[in-house]
């Protein structure tokens, strides 16, 4: 009998610790599949951020390193410059990447570092209990915006893919979502494309994934998919934001 659903070799057999309906496990699996399909397992180093995915290293059967909050792109820079043969994946949440580590992500992108960032945007600080993130929507209630994010006091959400696309150095930037089968396939394709470009030494690659956090959004897993579609996707349009040779104006 043919197995249709097999565990990727780059994924350990440890069961995910994530909440039901969380996006992290889904994206972990896609990354592992892409690593396997491109045969990169023996060269890959995955960076676990500070956030719910701090233990991403429990799941990737590759080499792993845990980074301080927001600093993963700097750690990735060090790893990759020290060993350009390696494949480096900086896996980060939105609090990590778009708040604590804003300087690190912008400058790694501006230098055109040859590594891949997988950016899990769930519009919330998951790990610390659902506080407002820089990506939290206007009006979205969170543990620290109990009346909804008020733009008068807390400003407006940060659009990281759009911001990075203003730079000339990045090779590839795409935003995808985990809301339906077609977008799951797009997400997987984007991750694989990013890793393939990295493998070819083409430069900085960035995949932003709009992901569910039912626990901290205070909804059940299926409502979370609905909310992602009805609220997150209009604020964060999906699509390819940059696909050009470094230095090329697009």
């Amino acid at each position: 009998m043919q197995k249709v659903f097999e565990r990727p070799k780059s994924l350990t057999d440890k069961p995910f610790h994530y909440c039901p309906g969380c996006g992290h496990g889904i994206v972990h699996r896609m990354i592992a599949e892409a690593i396997d399909e491109l045969k990169l397992a023996e060269r890959t180093i995955v960076i676990s951020p500070v956030g719910c995915s701090v233990f991403a290293y429990w799941y990737f059967a590759t080499d792993n390193i845990q980074a301080a909050h927001g600093r993963a792109p700097a750690v990735a820079t060090g790893l990759k410059r020290a060993n350009p043969e390696s494949i480096v994946i900086s896996y980060q949440g939105d609090g990590d990447l778009a708040s604590s580590g804003t300087a690190e992500i912008i400058h790694a992108a501006a230098r055109g570092e040859n590594f891949t960032v997988v950016f899990i945007n769930n519009a919330i600080y998951g790990m610390t209990g659902g506080q407002m993130a820089p990506t939290t929507l206007v009006g979205q209630a969170s543990a620290t915006s109990p009346y909804g994010r008020d733009p008068k006091f807390a400003g407006h959400p940060l659009h990281v893919s759009e911001m990075l696309a203003t730079l000339k150095a990045p090779r590839y930037i795409e935003r995808t979502a985990l809301n339906n089968v077609a977008n799951l396939a797009r997400t997987k394709r984007a991750i694989k494309k990013a890793l393939d470009l990295q493998q070819k030494g083409e430069g900085f690659t960035f995949v932003e994934v709009l992901a569910m956090c039912p626990t901290n959004w205070g909804v059940d897993p299926s409502e979370a998919v609905d909310w992602l579609e009805s609220s997150l996707m209009p604020e964060y349009p999906l699509g390819v934001y940059r696909d050009a040779a470094p230095g090329e104006v697009k």
Binding site: A74, V75, L79, A82, R111
Partner: peptide
């Protein structure tokens, strides 16, 4: 590498020395 901050510089060191160099 001219880092964007000393915060980044020390984390670049963290990544680089993790490779054994």
């Amino acid at each position: 590498i001219q880092a964007e901050t000393e915060v980044a510089a020390i984390n670049m060191v963290y990544g680089a020395v993790a490779t054994g160099r």
